[in-house]
Structures are given as C-alpha cells and as structure tokens.
C-alpha cells in the first residue's frame, strides 16, 4: 500500500470528522467529530513516518498529536460540565452567551 492510499484514508477520516464537528448539536458529539479529525492526523503522520523518513523525530511529533488529543478531550469535558452547571445546556445552540 502506498503513501497516497493511506493519506486518502486519513483525508476521509478528517473530512467525516469535519462534517460531525460542524453539524452536530450535542457538545459531546461535536467533540467526537474533533477526535475523528485528529484520528486522521495520527494516521497521516504514521504513514509519513513509515513511507518517507522512519526516524525518531517524527515519532516525537506523534506523541505531541496524542497529547493534543488528550488536552482537547479534558478541556472539552470541563467546558461542557461548566455549561451544564451554569445554564443546563448540553447542546451547542443553547450556549449563545458570546453571540454577537
């Protein structure tokens, strides 16, 4: 399997995640979309590593992507908890405090 084929799969994952992040109303489902986008990034980075330059540097980059996923999840849950606590909202449309 070539680099292009794996990257196409990664692009499909990213695009599906983008659809979810844009279209879903429930906060947790929006987070699922973001996770799916990062999933595609992980796959693309792994493919780059194997097919172009199997050096330790890019592995370290993958660790950074994993850390970003963790931070996204933790802060997302925290903000969703705060939203629920203050306004009882669990949907993005109910959280319009910053609407201009």
């Amino acid at each position: 399997m070539t680099l292009e084929a794996v990257l196409i799969v990664a692009a499909a994952l990213f695009s599906v995640g983008l659809y979810g992040a844009l279209s879903q109303q429930v906060v947790v489902m929006v987070m699922m979309g973001l996770e799916l986008m990062l999933n595609g990034v992980v796959l693309a980075a792994a493919a780059f590593w194997w097919f172009t330059a199997p050096a330790p540097s890019l592995q370290a980059l993958l660790v950074v992507v994993l850390a970003a996923m963790t931070v996204e999840m933790a802060m997302g849950f925290a903000v969703a908890t705060l939203l629920h606590r203050t306004s009882g909202a669990d949907m993005t449309d109910m959280a319009g405090d910053l609407r201009g």
């Binding site: 990257l7 692009a11 499909a12 990213f14 695009s15 599906v16 983008l18 659809y19 844009l22 279209s23 879903q24 109303q25 429930v26 489902m29 949907m91 449309d93």
Partner: peptide
Amino acid sequence: MVHSGRRAVIAAVTCFVLL
C-alpha cells in the same frame, strides 16, 4: 440532532476533494 447539515456536508466533501 443535526443543524445546518447541508452546509456541513458541502464543507466536508469540499475538504476531502481538496485534500
């Protein structure tokens, strides 16, 4: 629980085609 589903589909397909 979907809003602006059509625009989201268009954005996702455009993103995939560009990539």
